[in-house]
Design a protein around this nucleic acid. Sequence first.
DNA 1: TCATAATGTTGGATATATCAAAGTATCTGT
DNA 2: ACAGATACTTTGATATATCCAACATTATGA
Lengths: 151, 151
Amino acid sequence: MVAMERRDPEQDERLRSEIWEALYDFFMAEHERNLEAVAELGVSPGDLKALMRLAPGRGEPMRALADMWRCDASTVTWIVDRLQKQGYVERRPHPTDRRVKVVALSAEGEELRERMLRRLYRPPAVLSELSPGELAALHRVAARLAPPADQ
Amino acid sequence: MVAMERRDPEQDERLRSEIWEALYDFFMAEHERNLEAVAELGVSPGDLKALMRLAPGRGEPMRALADMWRCDASTVTWIVDRLQKQGYVERRPHPTDRRVKVVALSAEGEELRERMLRRLYRPPAVLSELSPGELAALHRVAARLAPPADQ
DNA sequence: TCATAATGTTGGATATATCAAAGTATCTGT
DNA sequence: ACAGATACTTTGATATATCCAACATTATGA
């Protein structure tokens, strides 16, 4: 409809807004459905967030979790307590500093995390309806949006 | 790299998953930043959800809100009480049914809602870095993902 | 009209989430 | 060695969010 070489900044801005609104609405709706689905597995939004942010096979000191989650140390105690009672994480001693407790996913925790990820990352049906060209374009965009893999 | 006419279903599936994971991560990160931003304005996630779901200029009976939000009637009472104390919504009588209370955004509520929307829908910086071609492709995809406007 | 249903509120219970203050154990630098 | 910092926990307070049961008010249908 519009000449491709046109670069009106104001119009570009409107286009970006229109795109972002549509995508945002779509993602929020998907996310809400996902939260309901994981809730049915007895996983609270807080549990989910914590589970997602614990790298499998690698433990983190409580202190590091408080920094990562930007909350109080005692909040971490509370959250980890709950996850531990459910058997999803373990507190392990730090090899050199006996003050530190290293929190790591248990086998059950890793399994649950996997299941959650499969649910969250399940591509919505509409994605299957896109043409190969659209899919390729979206792929390039997604690659651009993805945060630069930290080192 | 790969011939365009190739349609390996398994490979398509992997491509869709890859795209969705990247997009999902990106949106969740954005959303979290947004929640922090609105929290600084004294708006809880629940307030935000309620505010976003109240169409400006149109009131809804409490009962309708309970159905829309899929929660107990007394939960709606609680949420609306809080929003009303903050001055963002009003309870109005129903024109014909005196049992019903119609909840509508106040002027302040509409204003707050507008501010929230501007924040949520603010396109992220990366979007400005996309090429016109990428932006156009994303636009088509966004139009496809957008839920069919009801009726 | 009169039993029944629906709307919304109140009160009580519980879960989730957060912080601040105070305490215990351990570490570190001088 | 010891004073001060750091890591974590406990306790107590508060906010958010939800449900259920009981209730008052109002509508509806037989």
